Computed example of a mutant assay.
Amino acid sequence: MDGRVGVVLVSHSAALAAGLGELLARLGGAAVTVVPAAGTAEGGLGTSYELIARAVRAADGGAGVVLLADLGSSVLTARTVLADHPDEDLVLADAPLVEGAVAAVVTASTGAALAEVVAAAEQARGFRKF
């Protein structure tokens, strides 16, 4: 496979995803494609099947895509997209959005494989702040 693992940020808030994307761009540089799928198509709070599906296509550089979601319905909507488009190279990580995304992007920036990127994101669940 060519490219690096891409990351999709599934959030209820476009502003939240944009801010996190800004942070991730500094951490992963241009090496990792990070695409937000946040808010509704009309610009409100919520989640959108179409925005998630489009973001998955945009983030796919050939090495797989990890999705990270913020809350309940974003997880359900992302799961629906993945169920409708089954592909072993698309994974919804069971991870906190911010910490998981940071771990995923840093790991993906090294050229790590999809399984390693997912594992890094999911291990972020146990990160302690102090």
Rank of each mutant, 00 (worst) to 15 (best):
G3H: 09
G3T: 11
L9M: 00
L9C: 04
V10G: 09
S13V: 12
A18Q: 12
L24K: 03
A25V: 09
R26I: 15
L27T: 07
L27P: 08
G29Y: 06
T33G: 13
V34G: 00
V35P: 13
A38V: 10
T40G: 02
T40Y: 06
T40M: 02
G46A: 03
Y49A: 02
L51H: 04
I52Q: 09
R54L: 02
A58E: 09
A63R: 06
L67Q: 12
A69R: 11
L76K: 08
L76Q: 07
A78K: 09
V81R: 10
D84S: 12
H85E: 15
H85F: 06
P86C: 02
D87K: 03
D89V: 05
D89R: 10
L92D: 14
A93F: 02
P96E: 11
L97Q: 07
V98L: 13
E99Y: 02
A101G: 13
A101Y: 04
A104K: 05
T107R: 11
A108F: 06
A108K: 04
A113L: 13
L114K: 01
E116G: 15
V117K: 07
A120K: 11
A120V: 06
E122R: 05
E122S: 08
E122D: 08
E122Q: 13
Q123E: 15
A124K: 05
R128Q: 15
F130Y: 14
